[in-house]
C-alpha cells in the first residue's frame, strides 16, 4: 500500500489546565498517494485538529502518524520544520502572503528555507507562477491582486519544493464563488497531474470537487465515502489556459 498519510489510533487531548478537551478520539485513517480528499465537519468537529496534526504544526497526544513513510510523531521541532518544508504544501484560508514582498519572492520563501540557490529559486518561482496564470504579475505585491489571484500565488508557493502532499485549509473560505471555482479547478488539475490533495472545508459544493469525502464529528470520523460523481472540470491540462 502506498500510503502518503497513515494515522493509527491517533488521540489528541487539549489540556487547558482547568479542563481537558478531546480533539481527536482514536482516529485511524489512510490516504493513498494521488488521492483528492475532502475533510468535512462543523467547527469543533476535530477537522482543524486533524489539519494541524497532518500539517505537522501540532503533535498527537497518542498514536502514530506516518507521513510519506516517516513516523512524524517521534520527531523534534527542527525535524518537523524540515518535514513541513519538504513534504507539505500549505494553502491557507486567508492566503498568508507576506505583504511587502513581490509575489515572486513569496513563492521563493519555502525554497529559501530549503537552502536552494537564488537562481534556481527564481527560475522555479517564475515557472510556478506561470503555471497558475500569473506570469504577468511576478513583481506585483500581494495587495495589488484579487483574492483569487492571491490564492493562486499561495498554491504556487505550496508547490515550490514539490511536496508529496498539498494541504489546503478552507482554501475558498475568503473567496467569491467564481474565484472558488477557479481554485478548485486548480486543485483538480494538480490531482490529475498526480498530486495528493487534502482539502479541509465545511462547504458541500467545495467537497464535491474531490473524490473522497471524510466527515468528522466530535473528534471521530463519522463517514468516509467515495464521491462517485465529482464536479467535473474542463479537461485541458494547461491550468493557466483555463484560469485566465
Amino acid at each position: 500500500m502506498d500510503d502518503i498519510i497513515r494515522l493509527e489510533n491517533l488521540v489528541k487531548i487539549y489540556d487547558t489546565g482547568a479542563l481537558r478537551v478531546l480533539g481527536l478520539d482514536r482516529t485511524d485513517l489512510s490516504i493513498k498517494r494521488g488521492e483528492f480528499v475532502a475533510i468535512m465537519g462543523h467547527s469543533g468537529s476535530g477537522k482543524s485538529t486533524l489539519m494541524n496534526i497532518l500539517g505537522c504544526l501540532d503533535r498527537p497526544t497518542l498514536g502514530k502518524y506516518y507521513l510519506d513513510g516517516e513516523a512524524v510523531d517521534e520527531m523534534d521541532s527542527r525535524e518537523l520544520s524540515q518535514v513541513r518544508n519538504r513534504k507539505i504544501g500549505f494553502v491557507f484560508q486567508s492566503f498568508n502572503l507576506i505583504s511587502r514582498m513581490s509575489i515572486e519572492k513569496n513563492v521563493e520563501i519555502p525554497m529559501i528555507y530549503a537552502r536552494k540557490k537564488p537562481g534556481e529559486r527564481r527560475q522555479r518561482a517564475i515557472e510556478l507562477l506561470t503555471r497558475v496564470g500569473l506570469r504577468e504579475r511576478l513583481w506585483h505585491q500581494p495587495n495589488e491582486l484579487s483574492g483569487g489571484q492571491r490564492q493562486r500565488v499561495a498554491i504556487a508557493r505550496a508547490l515550490a519544493n514539490d511536496p508529496p502532499l498539498i494541504l489546503a485549509d478552507e482554501p475558498t473560505g475568503n473567496l467569491d464563488s467564481k474565484a472558488s471555482v477557479e481554485i478548485m479547478e486548480l486543485f483538480a488539475g494538480l490531482h490529475r497531474e498526480g498530486a495528493t490533495v487534502v482539502v479541509v472545508t465545511h462547504e458541500e459544493n467545495i467537497a464535491a470537487y474531490t473524490h473522497r469525502i471524510i466527515t468528522f464529528s466530535d473528534g471521530r470520523i463519522i463517514s468516509d465515502r467515495i464521491n462517485e460523481n465529482p464536479t467535473s472540470v474542463s479537461e485541458s491540462s494547461d491550468l493557466a489556459d483555463r484560469i485566465s
Partner: peptide
C-alpha cells in the same frame, strides 16, 4: 505574528 506563523508553516525553524 501571522508572518512568523506562515514562515514556520513553510519550513522556517525556530533558529531561522
Amino acid at each position: 505574528t501571522r508572518e512568523i506563523g506562515t514562515r514556520k508553516a513553510l519550513g522556517a525553524t525556530t533558529t531561522d
